[in-house]
Design a protein around this nucleic acid. Sequence first.
DNA 1: TGTTATATGTAGACCAGTCGTCATAGTATC
DNA 2: GATACTATGACGACTGGTCTACATATAACA
Lengths: 196, 196
Amino acid sequence: MAPPKSKQRQILVRAAAKLFRRQGYSGTGLRDILAASGAARGSLYHHFPGGKEEIGAAAVTAAGGLVTETFAELSRQAHDPADFLRRYTRLLVQWLEASKFRDGCPITTTLLETTPGSPAITAAGQAVFADWHAVMEAMLARHGWPPERAAPTATAIIAGLEGALMLARVRGSAQPIHDTTDALCALLEAGLPTAG
Amino acid sequence: MAPPKSKQRQILVRAAAKLFRRQGYSGTGLRDILAASGAARGSLYHHFPGGKEEIGAAAVTAAGGLVTETFAELSRQAHDPADFLRRYTRLLVQWLEASKFRDGCPITTTLLETTPGSPAITAAGQAVFADWHAVMEAMLARHGWPPERAAPTATAIIAGLEGALMLARVRGSAQPIHDTTDALCALLEAGLPTAG
DNA sequence: TGTTATATGTAGACCAGTCGTCATAGTATC
DNA sequence: GATACTATGACGACTGGTCTACATATAACA
């Protein structure tokens, strides 16, 4: 990753990630990815000798990385954990509504389909979740949470967000996200170890 | 559903549900379902004239119904909401470990792949989630939660469970479930409106 | 029992689509 | 001009879901 990688490669990964998020991994054919990216079949196999599985892992890594960056940015802006969560879910709801609830989590669907069948994709997903968790944990620590409580709380936040996103997509409504965010914020505010 | 439906039909639905849960909807071919159930090709189209989509919806309904029954049973046994949650996640972890983290939520994967592309499957999923929510909400109400707080809390519980289940599967560990359960229990115990 | 009528199970044809491979052609960079 | 890197799209072996035609099982009734 030292060199900025081929432009064509980036186009392919982005197209793949977009499609995987909407239709899932198995539901998306190489044909779709090729059509969406304007690339040729052999070109894909040049950049991804491992075929579909390799581009799947790359898509998970890339899409997950964007979310990691968003988390990091918001974690810098937020005044406290609950504020962080509210800022993020505000964005989330915007994205969801803009796509009419078609774009869900960019990695969950793919991971549920391919874990543990594809070790490469599973590993990519584990790495992404670890990154997310690290950002959250660091944010909680920065706001005074003791380490032994920051780690499990970070996991619970990610779980709640993922579950809420899924429910929102199926229900076609942002309500599950609001409800879950409220609950998580109550938890974060109640659990604030040192007030203010 | 007045008659107990054909036995073969039930075998088909069960096999389909099992496969969808592990490999997803698109990742499971009719071929797999037929092989797993021992049925013949045309037999499937006799019981499910709507083809794969119809058996997908039936699998979601059937698998979701089993979970609803489990929720209802546990909700009868539990002393309070936190106790309910702990009882359920104990079962959940047992199932997960027994399948070596291959069997996740029986409906989430299918729904993420097919929402909103398949209205029939989406509707089946919405109905299942509504059932789960109703059971949870009733349980909270029975333990003194006011209605306006029971509904969003029930949603947050389901979201947390679903997200934790997904993380557990990807990580190959029950830890996310324990962490999320602890957080949710803290919320339920803190939020208990009338103590005892 | 024999004869229907209906419900269910079986077998295979069908074609569009799947992923992966290959020999070839194009384009940088030195 | 030589050498790498990149792009191309046709090809093949196979699987996808769907449908039609036939065989069997079950039930009803004379």
